[in-house]
């Protein structure tokens, strides 16, 4: 394993860590690294850094590594980590905050998750509602997983779960405006 030279941590990284923490409403120095979060994390098996280690990177200011980690994109937002943290650190909020910061910087360590969420929000912006069939089909197309769940599709159609009808709100313009306005703030809340 490479040596991490902590003296190479830049001020920009430390400031970014502060910003990420602020957006998450978390003080990373509250964490005493007990690992209860990661012990109960259902997705830890798929992560490159377990949630505790993501917090550790942020504690030390190794922010670029955290932003390039897959973990925040693998996180299922089940919130079990935050619910059990003895120190009240909202780890889920941290994962979200890291992921949004990475996205703002154009990083996407997990292509699939990013494509899915972009399609989802695009869908909502256009129709005001999520159309699961469009979502799945478009995802398969853009992600290259062409055959994923195709075997289930006819069954879903037969059960009336998916159909040719596109669900949408009446006032599509209002939702579009609302989405654009929310996104225009660049992640700053107030």
């Amino acid at each position: 394993m490479d040596t991490t030279n902590l003296s190479n941590v830049t001020n920009a990284e430390l400031e970014a860590a502060d910003r990420i923490g602020k957006e998450a409403g978390v003080r990373f120095d509250d964490c005493y690294q007990c690992g209860k979060c990661s012990a109960g994390c259902p997705m830890a098996h798929a992560m490159d850094y377990v949630p505790r280690q993501v917090i550790r990177l942020l504690q030390l200011g190794i922010v670029d590594e955290a932003l390039n980690a897959k973990s925040p994109w693998i996180c299922a937002h089940c919130m079990v980590c935050s619910a059990r943290c003895p120190q009240g650190v909202d780890i889920t909020a941290t994962m979200l905050s890291v992921r949004r910061e990475a996205k703002r910087r154009g990083l996407r360590p997990d292509k699939e998750a990013d494509i899915f969420d972009d399609i989802f929000i695009g869908n909502v912006r256009s129709f005001g509602k999520s159309n699961e069939a469009i979502l799945a089909a478009k995802y398969n197309l853009l992600s290259g997983h062409l055959m994923q769940d195709m075997l289930n599709a006819p069954k879903m159609a037969a059960r009336g779960m998916i159909g040719p009808k596109i669900h949408s709100v009446k006032d599509k313009e209002a939702v579009k405006k609302l989405v654009d306005k929310a996104l225009s703030k660049g992640g700053e809340q107030k």
Partner: peptide, 8 residues
């Protein structure tokens, strides 16, 4: 999907 995209 909204949560991972933008807080607002």
């Amino acid at each position: 999907a909204a949560l991972v995209t933008d807080k607002n």
